[in-house]
């Protein structure tokens, strides 16, 4: 099923990357630079390492208005070692900010799930900040399609 869908997407460029959230053409989208700025503000200028954090998002979102995403970070979640927060950003939305999950040792696990809006096909980024200040990142490309009949 995914293969066929991908074939359609490849063959019909018009099917990809068109705003699904009713945004007019005048809307200025966030870009990689704005995303970098948000990441720097969150990490205090540190570059995030890979590993520890997993961002789950569909490869293809059936509708950009409601895209399920979840994050999980590998951590003991004890008083001495825990995940403080996870920030989620979307590079191609009007503003990159999506949500910041704030955890505590009482969370037991550093996992959270929500549903987000994606204005077009783009990268979704999740950065975890540990209580010792170390930062980790994961990134997923989510393709946003428009419907068959004018979306």
């Amino acid at each position: 099923m995914n293969l066929s869908r991908r074939q359609v997407l490849t063959l019909s460029a018009s099917a990809v990357a068109v705003a699904a959230t009713g945004l007019g053409p005048s809307v200025v989208f966030a870009d990689a630079a704005a995303t970098e700025k948000s990441i720097a503000a969150f990490t205090g200028g540190k570059s995030p390492a890979t590993g520890k954090i997993t961002l789950n998002a569909p490869e293809i979102a059936e509708n950009g208005n409601t895209v399920p995403i979840s994050v999980s970070v590998d951590s003991e979640m004890t008083k001495d070692s825990y995940v403080q927060s996870v920030m989620v950003l979307a590079e191609g939305n009007p503003n990159p900010g999506v949500i910041t999950f704030n955890f505590s040792p009482m969370s037991g696990e550093a996992t959270a799930t929500t549903r987000m809006r994606l204005a077009k096909t783009q990268n979704v980024v999740a950065i975890a900040k540990m209580n010792d200040g170390s930062v980790f990142m994961d990134k997923k490309l989510v393709k946003v399609t428009i419907g068959g009949c004018g979306g």
Partner: peptide, 11 residues
Amino acid sequence: VFSCDIEPAIS
């Protein structure tokens, strides 16, 4: 225990 800071990109 847990909290979220939420932006308009949440559905």
